[in-house]
Write a protein that binds this DNA or RNA. Sequence first.
DNA 1: GTAAATAGTTGCATTTGGCAAGTATTATTT
DNA 2: AAATAATACTTGCCAAATGCAACTATTTAC
Lengths: 307, 307
Amino acid sequence: MSKSVAADQIAAVREFNRFYTRHLGVLAQHLMDSPYSLTEARVLFELAHRETPLAKEIGASLGLDAGYLSRIVQSFADSGLVKRTPSPSDRRQHLLALTAKGRAAYADLERRSERDMGTMLASVQEAERPRLTAAMATIERLLGDHPAAPPILRSPRPGDIGWVVQSHGAIYAAEYGFDASFEALVAEIAGAFLAKHDPGRERCWIAEHDGMQAGSLFLVRDSDQVAKLRLLLVTPQARGHRLGDKLLNEAVGFARQCGYRKVTLWTQSILIAARRLYQSAGFELVGSEPHRSFGQNLIGETWELRL
Amino acid sequence: MSKSVAADQIAAVREFNRFYTRHLGVLAQHLMDSPYSLTEARVLFELAHRETPLAKEIGASLGLDAGYLSRIVQSFADSGLVKRTPSPSDRRQHLLALTAKGRAAYADLERRSERDMGTMLASVQEAERPRLTAAMATIERLLGDHPAAPPILRSPRPGDIGWVVQSHGAIYAAEYGFDASFEALVAEIAGAFLAKHDPGRERCWIAEHDGMQAGSLFLVRDSDQVAKLRLLLVTPQARGHRLGDKLLNEAVGFARQCGYRKVTLWTQSILIAARRLYQSAGFELVGSEPHRSFGQNLIGETWELRL
DNA sequence: GTAAATAGTTGCATTTGGCAAGTATTATTT
DNA sequence: AAATAATACTTGCCAAATGCAACTATTTAC
């Protein structure tokens, strides 16, 4: 949580709220040829999806006034959609249950809504639909109180090596002004790894966060005794979740398991977040020298970890 | 557009609709300490953001009943927020304009809403916020009926070469079952281009559609007289917009302008969409031979175009 | 020139939904 | 154990929100 929020982010969220308000308004109109109002439909949904629905729960969940809700439930009871039985544990409240007729009404509404949604989704390119649902899931996670899916590490899948090149190229250009030669170097390293590596002693990990690629790390053979780490990256969006630690631990563990005696790596002094990670993982700085690469004056550093 | 939509996608969208309905409901309650209802606030927004607002436009855009809107505008006029002047071009309609008082009221509402949104956003991790707004932008793009920005061709930017590798890797794996060696080959080709190419006679184009990378094509020197096309791709999401044509025309035009006498390319017989493109651009098949690559049995084809 | 369509207004009615007082019950305090 | 407070709902009351249809003035289409 931080206090100040960028104005353009606020503007973007407000714009989306306006957009989705309009969008939901259109959907609500489709509901119009059903006998239920939007609020009634929402209540019906809650009734259908709870084991033992209680009015107060539904009211709290939908943010409805108790009096208003009471009337809605009553109208449902009058038309035979719900049955109310006094709760044995607390005689102030009533256990609500959809009757067969109520379930049928709900199913009908459901069908209708699914059909409408289907036609709406049909106007979205098929290949884009997973993107749409992923974006929706992201919003729900961020605005809801859902716990984030724990980040995972996995082996690269088709496209992931390209993603490594892309993200290195884009991020280092944006954050440090590296020029295209850096992206070219990453392409060469990553491509060479993909073309030919010893799966028993060399490996690449992709960190995934929220279903998206969020980081990378490669461990390759330098000599029989020495492994080398390359291309450690965590995307800006995924920082702060200790993905770097995770990647590093996994790689060092693998190196140990492979029988390497030492892990080495080359990095730049300006990459302070990475340096901190190496340090806390037990790596030691064993040498540094200035060089000009990627359009920048840099100080290259070599770090080592004895296993 | 495709007919059948997966049930789980429909369910995901409906779930999101419920979620966001609740979310917007919470936001609307915050509005309650302002003198305006949600609908009035929306109308005020439209009034403030149009050059020459007309009632019918606002009504259409917000999906409001004409009678209802008329009354809202009237109430705004009564309280001195808007001024109505008969339109000179069509005397049935009135030109609406916020008065100074109206602008002040809007600004106040704006401030209020920004503050509320700010506190809401403050509960989202700072690093996550760009992800939130990106997801919102995605949804707006996919569900909005924005006239898709006309596709454009441009030079690669940082990350784009990596994107070429990624998209080739992912798409050929999914559509033709190519294995990792293909992605590795693309990484090598694209990386080599980036590392060293003659900008005067070699070039890469990225097709952009809807603000996203949507295709690629490289033209490189084969000999002084002969140029070679490589890595033509249009993403599945962007197909059907003649991006392939566009890329090909651009590249052939460039080759001509560079003084090449011939353009050649190597492709696979199974890539029928690409073949059709080459054919219609005037290329001729000059040779073909079976080979085993990328984990598949393929028939490689060489095509040529005399300039 | 006439019919049809459009932009907006107005009257009428319904629906939506908030608020407060009221009832029965349960929980908490002394 | 009695008194008090809180809870779960109900009910009456009311105002705001909003849909619908008829109506006027004007423009467009045939």
